[in-house]
């Protein structure tokens, strides 16, 4: 190879300028290793460019000191670590906790809703039960009333109105006497509520001579709703009377406490 010609071709100047292809660069650097003249020439070209570029600088200030450069290099490294990693980690952590908190609140809310619904449903079940009971009671009451009603409209029933006496002029009652079944229905709707410790006692009366026979007590007067009481009566009664007696009843009627009285009409 003609080294002189190679040098004078201008390829080494372009090598220093960085304008050759990768293959050309490799070639030149290999020639430079094996030919000292080429190496020397390259250094001389580089020196001239260095001189020119140095002259092109209008001078450097304190900013270009080495410690400033290290500050930037080391500072940059640190700030990169801080800027890139920490916020990212924090963001993930915060969002994770936030999601967990939202989930917890959500679960708590759903649990509460469920409890409320259960309570509501239990209340409704209880209400339904109560209504069913009321219907049952009403049906039973209706049946009872129906039976009572049927009994009272029977053609063999003797109706005896009992009117109020001196003690209670406003009181009244009715006796429905079924002779064939020997039963007396006492409708005590018009009697005042007996004072505590006292009870109404119903008497069958024979008039000549006056003979009272007890046919029963109107027990649980206050709690009986329709105030109709069924009593046995096998007597040939001519009149019925109701007196107020001490609880348990008396052997003979206390006439001062005679509330109502009525005679059986002659048939």
């Amino acid at each position: 190879m003609d080294i002189e010609k190679y040098i004078s071709s201008g390829i080494l100047e372009l090598y220093v300028a960085g304008l050759l292809t990768e293959a050309e660069n490799k070639e030149v650097s290999e020639y430079a290793k094996s030919h000292p003249e080429i190496e020397r020439e390259i250094r001389a070209i580089e020196a001239s460019v260095l001189a020119l570029s140095k002259a092109a600088s209008p001078g450097l200030s304190e900013k270009s000191k080495l410690d400033q450069l290290w500050l930037k290099i080391d500072g940059n490294d640190k700030s990169r670590v801080v800027e890139l990693r920490q916020p990212r980690r924090n963001w993930f952590a915060y969002s994770g906790w936030a999601a967990a908190a939202v989930l917890l609140v959500g679960l708590w809310w759903v649990y509460n809703q469920n409890q409320e619904l259960r309570t509501d449903m239990q209340t409704r079940v209880d209400e339904v039960q109560q209504l069913e009971n009321q219907i049952e009671e009403a049906r039973y009451s209706l049946t009872q009333t129906q039976e009572l009603f049927n009994s009272l409209r029977d053609k063999d029933v003797t109706i005896v109105p009992l009117s109020g006496q001196e003690v209670a002029p406003d009181a009244y009652a009715r006796a429905y006497w079924k002779k064939d079944t020997q039963q007396v229905y006492i409708d005590a709707q018009g009697l005042p509520e007996p004072p505590p410790g006292m009870v109404y006692q119903v008497w069958s009366l024979k008039l000549s001579p006056l003979t009272p026979t007890s046919i029963g007590l109107l027990d649980s007067f206050a709690t009986d709703d329709n105030k109709v009481f069924v009593l046995e009566n096998a007597n040939e009664s001519e009149a019925f009377g109701i007196t107020l007696e001490p609880a348990g009843g008396s052997e003979t009627p206390t006439l001062e406490q005679l509330y109502t009285l009525g005679a059986v009409a002659a048939s």
């Binding site: 570029s53 600088s57 450097l60 900013k63 400033q68």
Partner: peptide, 25 residues
């Protein structure tokens, strides 16, 4: 060895002494 040369090259392009110093760094 080289920072003043680099400064010179950059200054030739940007024509601003302080900016050239920053860019050289």
């Amino acid at each position: 060895m080289y920072h003043i040369n680099i400064h010179g090259v950059i200054h030739t392009i940007v024509r601003d002494k302080e900016l050239a110093e920053e860019l050289a760094q």
